[in-house]
Design a protein around this nucleic acid. Structure first.
Lengths: 130, 130
DNA sequence: CCGTATCCTGTTCGATACTG
DNA sequence: CAGTATCGAACAGGATACGG
């Protein structure tokens, strides 16, 4: 692997702030989307890639390694030709997803509000008060 | 600002995938932690910085601009000397936080499991099956 | 099919110094 | 106090080519 898995925090630091330790790993660009794509069941690599849409093979592989390492995803290899690799959420992964789904639903519902806020936003630099 | 706000997706793209549009903005390294730090009420810049702990002033300012732009956080300036700036969650920000708190609690509870998974993980490259 | 190796570009972000 | 400007290192991540 020339994309070494992202370094994990030291034990001491992670112990003091578990949230940070977890969010550092799954709070990146692809992890949540990958977990969500696996929510409907087992998927093979290419299917998973298409389900996410615009992820590159490189990033998908890397993301899956981390999710696998942390115990969210199970990787099952069938040494056939051509090879077949299946990815499935573990119990841990599903329990995490349960907490994430409300967030995704919230995003869908409140998106218009956010778009509107963006349109009316004036950056502080343009504000004569400061 | 020499750290221009992260570009927002085109209208067409954001329309098709609101989740991505939202997660691209709040799924970064600091946004969730910043929102969480504001959950107990209004905070001034320096207090907020200390509450988060290891964020730099640069990143805190940048993160707050995005949160402000998207309508999660209200920025209130008191043109006194020395200046005083207060940050408060908006109703939108609080409603988002409600969805995030379970995630944070989950992280705290399941952290040991994750740590354990990491210790026993063997990367695929070392696996002779592939 | 399921990746990895290499290359390369843009972005991120901390450190430092500075200002009203 | 509440930031901004600038620099530079590290990282993210796409494109491409290739391999079992």
């Amino acid at each position: 692997m020339k994309f070494p898995l992202p370094p994990v925090q030291t034990d001491a630091h992670a112990e003091r702030c578990p949230v940070r330790d977890v969010l550092d790993c799954i709070g990146d660009r692809w992890s949540l989307l990958t977990l969500a794509a696996l929510s409907n069941g087992t998927l093979r690599f290419t299917r998973l890639k298409h389900a996410i849409g615009d992820i590159s093979a490189r990033m998908l592989a890397q993301t899956l390694r981390v999710l696998e390492r942390d115990g969210y995803v199970l990787r099952q290899v069938y040494p056939t030709i051509p090879p077949k690799v299946e990815y499935t959420l573990t119990a841990l992964g599903r329990s995490l997803l349960v907490k994430i789904i409300p967030l995704i639903e919230w995003a869908g519902k409140n998106h218009p509000r956010i778009r509107k806020a963006r349109k009316t936003y004036v950056p502080p630099a343009a504000n004569p008060a400061l």
